[in-house]
């Protein structure tokens, strides 16, 4: 019960901040940035990697400010701004496509060796960007298909398909080194 009250109060705060930001309050928008920063950086990390994530999120938040009037429902600010970040990640990903694949080159078998520190990103980067995002939002953020769908701009059925492909891809990459 206490948790429900806490969640409702956070949501109310966000909605209030969004309304004030819509009226032009930079202070309110700053509070929104502070509230959502960590979560958005995590999402960006899963799609573009560590090096670019924070720059991408900062750029996305500036874009979000300029488009705030297009947000129809203040309750949906979280998924709306996540979608802006995700699209920005896709664009960044296109620019750095070659670089990601080079960074991701690692012998998959070394992932199984506990003494060798192979970044999870080096496995994740071998997946398609949408598969990375679905994997992250499911495994790390614990979101449902219905919650993930508006963030990525796809249907819940597509979310399920991307998750299947992502799991199969990760398993293939990991097994590839063990067999």
């Amino acid at each position: 019960m206490a948790l429900c009250v806490a969640l409702v109060s956070v949501d109310t705060t966000t909605v209030d901040l969004v309304r004030r930001a819509l009226d032009g309050s930079r202070e309110a928008f700053g509070a929104l940035v502070e509230t959502h920063w960590d979560r958005l950086v995590r999402l960006a990390r899963s799609v573009v990697g560590d090096a670019e994530a924070e720059d991408v999120v900062q750029d996305s938040l500036v874009v979000a400010w300029t488009r705030l009037a297009r947000l129809s429902d203040p309750h949906k600010f979280g998924s709306w701004v996540s979608r802006i970040v995700f699209r920005r990640c896709l664009r960044t990903n296109r620019w750095q496509r070659g670089r990601v694949s080079l960074d991701a080159i690692v012998e998959p078998s070394r992932f199984c060796d506990p003494e060798v520190s192979v970044s999870a990103w080096q496995i994740l980067a071998r997946l398609a960007p949408r598969q990375r995002a679905v994997f992250h939002l499911t495994a790390v953020e614990g979101m449902t298909d219905a919650e993930i769908a508006p963030v990525l701009g796809i249907t819940p059925a597509s979310v399920r398909a991307h998750r299947r492909q992502a799991r199969a891809g990760v398993a293939r990459i990991i097994r590839g080194g063990t067999s």
Partner: peptide, 9 residues
Amino acid sequence: ADIAKSRVL
């Protein structure tokens, strides 16, 4: 987050 906020603002 607080530094990110001031940079974005």
